[in-house]
C-alpha cells in the first residue's frame, strides 16, 4: 500500500524554479531518507509534505486523499531546532499534543483525564529514555535529550507520517549513534511512515529503507534560475529493512536495548561508555 504519492510536483518562487517534475510514491511503513547538496530543495519538499507550502504544480496524495493545505496531526514533525516548547516542562511538552486535541477551548486537561494523560506521557518518556527528567525545562536538557523529547512529543499524536528535518544534524557522533538506535526501534514499533531530510549519507544508510537523492541536473550559472532540482536517484537499501522485523544488519539492536538510561544496568563495555558519556557530557547548569 502507498502512503504518500507525489505526482509531477513543481515548486517555484516567482521566477526561481526550486523543484521540477518530482514523482515519488512512498510505501506505508517505509523510512525514506531525502539526501542531496544544500539548496537542492530537500527542505522545501518536506515543507510541502507538511502542508506548510503548496506545490506550484502537481499534487500530493496522503493515503489516497489530497493533502490538507495546512499542517495537521496526521503528519508529525521534528526539526533540528525549535521542536519543543521552551515554556513547558518535559512532561508538559509531551502532554500538550493530546491536551490540545482533547480540550478545544482551554487546551488543558484537568482531573482524572489529566492524570491518565500524564501516565501515558510518562511511559512515552521512558520509551525514549527520558524517565526522571519530567520536571525539567527543555533548556536544561542536552541537545540529544531535546531531540528525544521532540520525538516523544510528536509520537504522542500517533501520526501516520513522521517528517524529520535534519533532526540529528547538530548532535555529536556518540549521542547521534544512540539516538539512531532509538529512531530505528521507534520506527519498528510505531506504525508510521517516516520521511527524513538529511545531508549525512551515512545516517541515511543507517536508518532508511530507501534513499532518494535530489539534485540539480542543470547547474550552470545561467541555468540555475530556470531549472530546479529533481529526483536523481532512488535507491532501495539492501538487504531490505522491513518495519517490525530485524535484518542481518540490524540484528544487534534488540528492542528496548538501545538506551541504558532507561534500563538502569549495562550490557557491555561499549554501551556502558556510551551511556555514561551521554549522562556526563552535558552537566546541567
Amino acid at each position: 500500500m502507498t502512503a504518500i504519492v507525489i505526482e509531477n510536483v513543481w515548486k517555484e518562487y516567482g521566477d526561481q524554479v526550486v523543484l521540477e517534475s518530482v514523482n515519488l510514491s512512498v510505501e506505508t511503513r517505509a523510512f525514506v531518507a531525502l539526501v542531496g547538496p544544500s539548496g537542492c530543495g530537500k527542505t522545501t519538499f518536506l515543507r510541502m509534505l507538511l502542508g506548510q507550502e503548496k506545490p506550484t504544480r502537481g499534487r500530493i496524495l496522503l493515503d489516497g486523499a489530497a493533502l490538507p493545505p495546512e499542517p495537521g496531526p496526521d503528519r508529525g514533525v521534528v526539526y533540528q531546532r525549535y521542536s519543543v516548547f521552551p515554556h513547558l516542562t518535559v512532561l508538559g511538552n509531551v502532554m500538550i499534543g493530546p491536551e490540545l486535541r482533547g480540550a478545544r477551548l482551554l487546551g488543558r486537561r484537568f482531573g482524572a483525564a489529566r492524570r491518565a494523560l500524564a501516565e501515558e506521557a510518562r511511559s512515552m518518556l521512558a520509551e525514549v529514555g527520558l524517565a526522571g527528567n519530567e520536571n525539567k525545562y527543555p533548556a536544561q536538557l542536552s541537545g540529544g535529550m531535546q531531540q528525544r523529547l521532540a520525538l516523544a512529543q510528536a509520537l504522542m499524536m500517533k501520526p501516520r507520517v513522521l517528517l524529520l528535518d535534519e533532526p540529528f544534524g547538530a548532535l555529536d557522533p556518540g549521542i547521534r549513534a544512540d539516538i539512531h538506535k532509538l529512531m530505528k526501534r521507534l520506527w519498528n514499533e510505531v506504525p508510521m511512515t517516516v520521511v527524513m531530510v538529511t545531508h549525512d549519507l551515512r545516517e541515511a544508510f543507517t536508518l532508511a529503507t530507501r534513499i532518494v537523492a535530489f539534485e540539480r541536473l542543470r547547474d550552470r550559472p545561467e541555468e540555475r534560475l530556470r531549472y530546479g532540482a529533481t529526483l536523481s536517484r532512488d535507491i532501495d537499501v539492501w538487504p531490505p529493512r522491513i518495519a517490525g522485523r530485524t535484518t542481518i544488519y540490524d540484528a544487534d539492536i534488540l528492542p528496548g536495548q538501545d538506551d541504558l538510561t532507561s534500563l538502569g544496568h549495562s550490557f557491555g563495555t561499549t554501551r556502558q561508555t556510551g551511556a555514561s558519556e551521554h549522562a556526563t557530557r552535558f552537566p546541567h547548569p
Binding site: S83, I96, G97
Partner: peptide, 13 residues
Amino acid sequence: PREMIIKAETLSA
C-alpha cells in the same frame, strides 16, 4: 520561530 507554530499545528492546535 515559525517551526514552533508549525509544530503546534501538527499537534492539532
